[in-house]
Nucleic acid binder design. Structure first.
Length: 107
DNA sequence: GAATTGACGTTCT
DNA sequence: AAGAACGCCAATT
């Protein structure tokens, strides 16, 4: 049922990220009330393979595609972001704050 | 069963 | 101000 585990919450929020928007692990973690558990958010994304979660819209607080290596080992993640209108430079999102989507503020 | 690692971020020194 | 250490919980080895 609604076993709201930390993981499931992360999946729920990540899946609610609108098109052309991005968020950070800490933002989601903080929204869930566990700002210091940002690692769990990333760990959840690792398991995102079990869920259809747009993990490519989730980056670290700096806007760097830290987990691009988990997308297949290529620039797939960057391509996906650019496909949504987000500019990426050297694995780093341009105007990250501009495309930033805060779950606690928007949701 | 125990120890180490892991898509990060905060806090202390 | 900059750098280093810690914390969080789960999964893997």
């Amino acid at each position: 049922m609604e076993d709201e585990n930390f993981f499931d919450k992360v999946y729920a929020v990540a899946r609610e990220i609108p098109y052309g928007k991005v968020t950070s692990y800490g933002a989601i973690a903080k929204y869930l009330g566990a700002a210091r558990s940002a690692r769990m958010v990333g760990w959840a994304m690792n398991n995102s393979s079990a869920k259809e979660v747009p993990a490519h819209r989730v980056v670290n607080r700096v806007g760097v595609l830290t987990g691009k290596h988990h997308f297949g080992g290529t620039n797939l993640m960057q391509q996906l972001l650019e496909n949504e209108g987000i500019k990426v430079k050297d694995n780093q999102i341009v105007d990250f704050q501009k495309h930033f989507w805060d779950p606690g503020k928007e949701l």
